[in-house]
Amino acid sequence: MTHVSETNVERTVDTAAMQVSTTDVAIEVIGMHKWYSDFHVLRDINLKVMRGERIVIAGPSGSGKSTLIRCINRLEEHQEGQIVVNGTELTADLKRIDEVRREVGMVFQHFNLFPHLTILQNLTLAPIWVRGIPKAEAEATAMHYLERVKIPEQAQKFPGQLSGGQQQRVAIARSLCMQPRIMLFDEPTSALDPEMVKEVLEVMISLAEDGMTMICVTHEMGFARQVANRVIFMDQGQIIEQNDPENFFSNPQHERTKLFLSQILH
């Protein structure tokens, strides 16, 4: 077995609680294609994610990983095929898009917190103005999630005053405040200092233990091995290989996958 060089999370992950539904489909992508003007960036993507599943998408840069998950909440538009999220098909219909986005949280590589608002305001903005939750209740929920990501004392600060790891934890809490059914992570630890990767991964693991449906684009192979129940490998806009983590890492099939793993695992 290869040795994984990336951050290993020390505690054992409680996999027993992580139930995956066999009947409830969270996301279904069928024959999806996407172009950036003439560039065919995603080709014939087929993907079915069950409720409670935790999927890690790996692949070289430019392989279309981020674009794929950005299509799932329509930050990017696809041109062919179907994407169905929580039973709603994504089309140009703005109402449907907002409906899907309300239920799908997203965490970005560069956090994208709102710099002009305090941490608490960052967390309560969407619950108040999208869900119509009263301010006091939204703040209580926000404090609950800030405690969960272990930084309740930062509530009154501005994002610029926090470290990268803290900002990313706030970003996760901000998404959770909308109580989404699916979470998308777009390289959540890639912009962090090495010392801060672990604190963010810890939060993601505890989310997984609660049974959240998650799709993570990440280079943290230690995380993939411990938490994912499926690893997807992409290259040139296509899904090249997918398998459970055990077989994916120890017995990769495709030549490209083998090459990729040999580059990042030593």
Partner: peptide
């Protein structure tokens, strides 16, 4: 403004005017 600000707002379900 960085694009991420528009996207973060959108991903939270906030419509154009909000």
């Amino acid at each position: 403004l960085p694009r991420g600000q528009f996207e973060a707002g959108a991903s939270l379900g906030l419509g154009y005017w909000k």
